[in-house]
Design a binder for these strands. Structure first.
Length: 216
DNA sequence: TACATGATGCCCT
DNA sequence: GGGCATCATGTAG
């Protein structure tokens, strides 16, 4: 990662989740561990709106589970799903207004071996280490990226993304995204028609490479 | 390669 | 007790 990379601020997340989801593409998710740094480029996100979005966890009001979505912007909302997996979100909009963005897929950048271990994958020979077909196994999905980063609700729910002291951060390393694709969100039944999934077109690291586009 | 299905546990009604 | 912002595996083609 380039030396000149800057931490995203609270103001970045204090916006409509659709704009945050779009702007997060190309940014770098970072986990600082005692053993080193894990980093992955964000290649796929989904926006969950506070108002009028039946698919959002905040749709039926504030509960113990979803309270982070109603708090200040730039904090981690982690939930447990389908008995096996965690999903990572960042809260958006001002304190008191619900909204968030789900991290759906990352391109592994740093700490590939550690992330593979977190996923329970055996590391192949060096000739495969940089192949997208293998790297895809690490974090091409919301449940997978949480395994790779060892993200759990107990450890990370409510954690700040915007504190310089946090072990969970998001940085801008100057990378420019060439082309963004937009489509319907994955795995939901309510409000499934809304085009709120954002991903980097042609990236081999997204969770579902091909899916009908709504707009370019 | 594409699709269907089962595993699994927590939160909310 | 139902439903769930998922994933790995098995079967068919």
């Amino acid at each position: 990662m380039p030396a000149a990379s800057t931490l995203l601020s609270s103001a970045f997340f204090n916006r409509d989740p659709r704009r945050v989801a779009r702007s997060l593409l190309g940014k770098v998710l970072i986990r600082r561990t005692p053993h080193g740094i894990l980093a992955g480029r964000i290649v796929e996100t989904e926006a969950y709106l506070g108002a009028g979005d039946a698919a959002a966890h905040s749709a039926s009001g504030k509960t113990a589970r979803n309270s982070v979505l109603f708090g200040p912007p730039g904090f981690a909302y982690v939930y447990f799903i389908y008995g096996n997996y965690y999903c990572l979100n960042v809260s958006c909009l001002p304190d008191g207004v619900p909204g968030g963005v789900l991290f759906r897929a990352l391109e592994p950048l740093m700490g590939v071996r550690e992330m593979a271990a977190g996923r329970g994958l055996s590391v192949p020979g060096p000739e495969y280490l940089k192949k997208a077909s293998w790297l895809r196994k690490i974090s091409a999905g919301p449940g997978l990226l949480c395994e790779a980063f060892s993200i759990t609700r107990a450890r990370d729910n409510g954690k700040s993304f915007v504190s310089s002291r946090s072990d969970l951060q998001i940085a801008d390393d100057g990378h420019r995204v060439r082309r963004v694709a937009i489509g319907p969100r994955i795995g939901i039944t309510k409000s499934a028609e809304q085009p709120l999934r954002y991903f980097i077109a042609n990236s081999p690291f997204v969770s579902v490479p091909l899916r009908p586009l709504v707009k370019a």
